[in-house]
Design a protein around this nucleic acid. Sequence first.
DNA 1: TATTTAATTTAGACAAATCTAAAATATATT
DNA 2: AATATATTTTAGATTTGTCTAAATTAAATA
Lengths: 216, 216
Amino acid sequence: MQSYTEENYLKIIFHLSQNSNPVQTNAIAEKIQTKAASVTDMLKKLADKELVNYVKYQGVTLTEKGKLTAINIVRKHRLWEVFLVEKLNFKWDEVHEVAEELEHIKSTLLVERLDEFLEFPKVDPHGDPIPDQYGNFADLSFIKLSKLKANEKGTITGVSEHSSPFLKHLEKLGLTLGKKIEISEIIDFDGSVELLIDNNKINISREVAKHILISK
Amino acid sequence: MQSYTEENYLKIIFHLSQNSNPVQTNAIAEKIQTKAASVTDMLKKLADKELVNYVKYQGVTLTEKGKLTAINIVRKHRLWEVFLVEKLNFKWDEVHEVAEELEHIKSTLLVERLDEFLEFPKVDPHGDPIPDQYGNFADLSFIKLSKLKANEKGTITGVSEHSSPFLKHLEKLGLTLGKKIEISEIIDFDGSVELLIDNNKINISREVAKHILISK
DNA sequence: TATTTAATTTAGACAAATCTAAAATATATT
DNA sequence: AATATATTTTAGATTTGTCTAAATTAAATA
Ligand SMILES: [Mn+2]
Ligand SMILES: [Mn+2]
Ligand SMILES: [Mn+2]
Ligand SMILES: [Mn+2]
């Protein structure tokens, strides 16, 4: 059994593994909002428990056991987010903090019943895939909106930034999941994107465009 | 803000206050499954935070602030129990452990939305009253089944023992919330109770009868 | 390659919550 | 009132997770 803290480390290592493998001590420290020295202490402990492969100065990778544990936390996090939005009328920018707490509740019966109650959702309110109870993700193929060229079309199916200010901004612009968009023009000057949504022409910064995920 | 542990102490002190006031160190130690010395340490800490009134060797009482905090935890515990039974099809003997974890989730928005989603329930799956957001309990007047005399009638509206074996036992006997019963006879020999339920005559021990709560 | 800089680890300390053993206080019994 | 017993508190240690400061190793640069 892992502590709340250990679970958070495993989850962060899992997410950071998507970008770089092995994961560096400093990257973890930044995400967990702690010091590199604390991370080192924890990595040794997780290695003792055979949840990570750790070689000093070389970074860490998750073991199979550690990976499954991490995925299970991600599963719970995303299921709870769906619950909050679908059943309790939370907005998509209000769910993350609460899900950070709920993801640590231990009962497996609870998770399976929740999944059933929500009718086995495949994605969370931010378009992130929800792994099944065996840890398998349906692989959804996303393209960043910023990669699209003029005249290309697509549907918004995810976001890669979950902060409340960003999500509220999208909401205000009408850029929510499921909406169809068409690129009008990429502005040379600053790389910002002009696009059509609900018959309106709007402009978004390149920074925003990078965090909107599109499927065709 | 209180820690998970502090919250548990406050909740236990609140419950023990119903029987004896002030509450003794040993009584707390037994409930929390810890040592008297640990309880003393925590009581000092809670006193510093003005959550309890503590005089050494005299026991503790909750301050107004401490009491409100405790009631809020009880509120959350019982709302989550309703959720688990009503929405996720948990049985009444399966909810307590999970609710012990869920009661510590902090979001007030979550609690209010959950209350609304459940349509403002007044009692939990064990018949215990759910306080409102201001800490007010609807006072339900219960009598222990063991206090009833032959020929008296009533409705089962609560239980004062929440262990899984006890609740499963009641379930098997058909003694669930809302059921109407009539006392046939109190057996002299052992004080056991013979009663009518759903047109069946059954016998329950005095020990069981003490933990069934009846309203007329 | 030598030197500078960045990343990581070690050493030692600290706060929270717990423990055991011993001392102090309160309550019960003669 | 004196003694015995039960309850509670103190003292000192332990575990978990964190910290700062200093030392070590790796990576970048000259
Ligand atoms: Mn989230
Ligand atoms: Mn999400
Ligand atoms: Mn309960
Ligand atoms: Mn209950």
